[in-house]
Design a protein around this nucleic acid. Structure first.
Lengths: 348, 348
DNA sequence: CCTCCTCGTGGAATCGATTACACGAGGAGG
DNA sequence: CCTCCTCGTGTAATCGATTCCACGAGGAGG
C-alpha cells in the first residue's frame, strides 16, 4: 500500500508538502498542489488512518456499547447514532453487550484501547470498574437510554412516566383491575423506573401492585415467557401483563399461545418500546413508543459537544402511548372521556 | 494516559523489556517481569492499540459491511459474526449500507483506511470500484449472503433452491395456482436467484410465472407494500405472494391489511428469511429459514483463514421451509403425501 | 541598493509501540 | 585460567503520518 513517502517521491516534493495538500493548508503553491494530487491519483493513495490517529491523538471514532443488538429498539438506536455521527464526520464502532456485564466490560476495554474519541453507553449493570474509571479519567462519555446514578456523565433518555400513566388510565378505562408487570433487571435504571412509574400510576387509581404481580425479567424473550407462565399459574392471575420491553412481550405472547389462551380475551398485554412488528402481531400490541431516532441523534450531538469541548448536556424526551388491540376493544367511541393526554390511537 | 515509557520508568527497565513482558517473550527474568507487571498495575496501563497496529501492520479487526441493519436477518448475521470473531481474537466494525451503493462505498473506504485485516461484505450492488480494487489488491475478503459474480473471493451463503421447491410444492398442494413474487433488486445475487428458483420450481409443476406476477422490490418494507398493492389491483390478482425477504413481507402484510383483506383467506403469503416475529404475526407466516448463525460463523472462519494464510474456501449451507398458516390450512393430515422432503411443520 | 517580510518548502522531531542488534555478565568446558 | 555460549537487557530504527522550525527566494519599501 502506497504511503505518503511514495506520494512525495512521485510528486517530487517532501512529505510535509504532501501532508499540507492533503489537509488543505493554505501555504502550498498551485503547482505543487497539482503535482501532489496527480501523484495521489496515480498511486491510488489513501492516508493511513492508524498513523494519522497516532500522531494527532484522535481517531474521529465513537464507541457505542449497547445492551442487545437483537433488540429492535437498540438496532434502531444504533442506526440513528451511526447516521448522525457520520453527518458530523465520525465513525462508530458498536459493541454488543448481550445484557452481560462481562461482555460490556470487554467492549469498553477494547474501545478504550483503540483510543476512540468518545463513548456512548447504555449500561447493562451498575457499571464496570473500567467504565467508571474511564468516566473519572475524563474520557468523553454519554449515557443513552439507561444510565448509572451518581456518575457525572450526561444522560440522553426518554421519560416514560407520563406514557405509563396514560397506559394505566387506558387499562383502567377498559375495566382492568389486576395489573402485573414483567420488570427489567433491577441493576438497570430502565428496569427500576418502569416498575416505579407503573406502581405510581396504579396508585393514582387506587390500585395495588402486589409482589406476586411483579415478575423479574432480564429484557430477554425467555424471561418474559417464564414470568408470564408464573402469572398464569397464580390462583388469581392478572388481567393484564405489561412487559417492560418488546422482547419480553414476545416471550409473553409465546407463553400465552403455548397455553392455548388468547390475547386479549384471556389476558391483556402491553409493552414498553414500540416496534414495527407490533402492528402485525395477533393481536396488534398496545405499546409505549420512545422517540428512538431522536434519542440516538441527541446522544451523538451531546457526545460530540463534549469531545470538542462545547459542554454537552443531558436530554430527556417524552415517550407516548400507542393504543392497539392487545388490551381489549376500546369502548366504542364513548364520548365520556375526551382524554386530554397525548394518547394516540393507532391507525391499525 | 500512561504510555509504555511511563511503565518502563516506573519499573526501572527499558521499554523493550516492558514490551517483551507484555507480549510474553521468554527471555525476561522473573524479577523484571514482576516489576513491570507491578508498574502496569500501579499505572493502570493499557497498550495503545493504534501504535501497536501502526508498527505491526495488523489491527486484529474485521470489517463487516451489511446491506441493512434494520433487517433482523442481517442483525442476527452481524451478531454471530461478532461472536465468532471475538472467539478468534478479532474485533468487528460494522458498516450499514442501507441498501445504498454510495453508503456501501463510504464504509468500505473508511474500513480500508483504518487498515482492517479483512473484509466481510454482503454487497448491495454490482460492487463499488473501490471494493473490486481492494479485492484485486489482495485485501483478505469474503462475501456473505450475497456476492459478486466474476470476482475471485470466497462466498459463504445459503442455497434456498431446495427450500423454494418445497415451498412451491406446499403451495401447489394447497391448491394454489397463481403464484407471484416480490423480487429483490436485480443488482444483487439473492435478488435474482430467488426469482430464478421460484420460476424453476413453478415450471416443475407446469405453472407459469408471468411478468405481471414479478414485482420489483428493493428488500425494504415500502417496496413490499407498493408491489402488493399492484398485485391486488390486477384484473386477476395472484393467490399467493412470495416475498423475497422478511421486510417486504412486512410491507405486504401492511398492504393487505390496509385493504381490509385477510391472509390467507383473500391472499396467501410466504417469505424468504424466517424471523422470530413470524410466529406471532396474524397469521403466522410460512417462511424459508436460513442457518443464519452458522453462515456468520463460517464466514468469519473463512476470512480469518485467508488472513492467516490458510486458504479459506466458499461454503454453501441449505435453507429449509418452515410451514405456518399464512398460505392456508394444510389439508387435515391426509396420508396422501408423506412428503419425503425436509419440510418441517412448525410447532406453532 | 539594502533591509525586511512574506511565502513556499524541506528537514527533522514526534506519537507509542515492536524488534533487530549489540553488549556485558556469568557459567561451562577445555 | 581462558574462551565461548547463553541469557537478560538496553539502544535505536521503524511504522506513516503531522507540524514546528529554519531557510532561501523574491517583492516591497525606504
Amino acid at each position: 500500500m502506497a504511503s505518503i513517502k511514495d506520494v512525495a517521491a512521485e510528486a517530487g516534493v517532501s512529505v510535509a508538502t504532501v501532508s499540507r495538500v492533503l489537509n488543505g493548508h493554505p501555504s502550498v503553491s498551485a503547482a505543487a498542489r497539482a503535482r501532489v494530487l496527480g501523484a495521489v491519483e496515480a498511486l491510488g493513495y489513501r492516508p493511513n488512518a492508524v498513523a494519522r490517529s497516532l500522531r494527532t491523538d484522535q481517531t474521529r471514532t465513537l464507541g457505542l456499547v449497547i445492551s442487545d443488538v437483537l433488540n429492535p429498539y437498540f438496532t434502531e438506536l444504533a442506526r440513528s447514532v451511526e447516521e448522525e455521527a457520520r453527518a458530523l464526520g465520525y465513525s462508530v464502532i458498536i459493541g454488543n453487550a448481550d445484557e452481560r456485564p462481562d461482555l460490556q466490560d470487554h467492549h469498553v476495554t477494547t474501545l478504550l484501547d483503540r483510543r476512540i474519541d468518545g463513548l456512548l453507553v447504555s449500561p447493562t449493570d451498575g457499571g464496570s470498574p473500567r467504565m467508571l474509571e474511564a468516566a473519572r479519567a475524563g474520557t468523553p462519555m454519554v449515557f443513552v437510554d439507561r444510565w448509572i446514578p451518581g456518575v457525572d456523565v450526561p444522560v440522553v433518555r426518554s421519560d416514560g412516566r407520563a406514557a405509563v400513566r396514560d397506559l394505566v388510565a387506558h387499562l383502567h378505562g377498559l375495566g382492568h383491575r389486576r395489573l402485573a408487570i414483567i420488570a427489567g433487571p433491577a441493576a438497570t435504571t430502565t428496569g427500576r423506573e418502569r416498575v416505579d412509574a407503573f406502581r405510581e400510576a396504579l396508585g393514582a387509581h387506587g390500585l395495588p401492585l402486589p409482589d406476586a404481580y411483579i415478575g423479574q425479567g432480564d429484557f430477554q424473550a425467555d424471561s418474559g415467557r417464564r414470568v408470564t407462565e408464573g402469572f398464569l399459574d397464580l390462583p388469581e392471575p392478572p388481567e393484564v401483563v405489561f412487559a417492560a420491553d418488546n422482547l419480553m412481550a414476545l416471550g409473553a405472547l409465546d407463553a400465552v399461545r403455548a397455553r392455548g389462551l388468547r390475547v386479549p380475551r384471556d389476558i391483556a398485554l402491553a409493552a414498553f418500546d414500540d416496534i414495527r412488528w407490533f402492528v402485525h402481531t395477533d393481536p396488534p400490541v398496545t405499546a409505549i413508543a420512545q422517540p428512538t431516532g431522536e434519542l440516538g441523534r441527541a446522544a451523538v450531538r451531546a457526545l460530540v459537544d463534549r469531545i470538542e469541548g462545547r459542554g454537552g448536556a443531558s436530554v430527556t424526551l417524552p415517550a407516548r402511548l400507542v393504543v392497539r388491540r392487545s388490551c381489549g376493544e376500546p369502548p366504542a367511541s364513548s364520548p365520556q372521556s375526551p382524554s386530554p393526554s397525548p394518547v394516540r390511537r393507532s391507525t391499525t
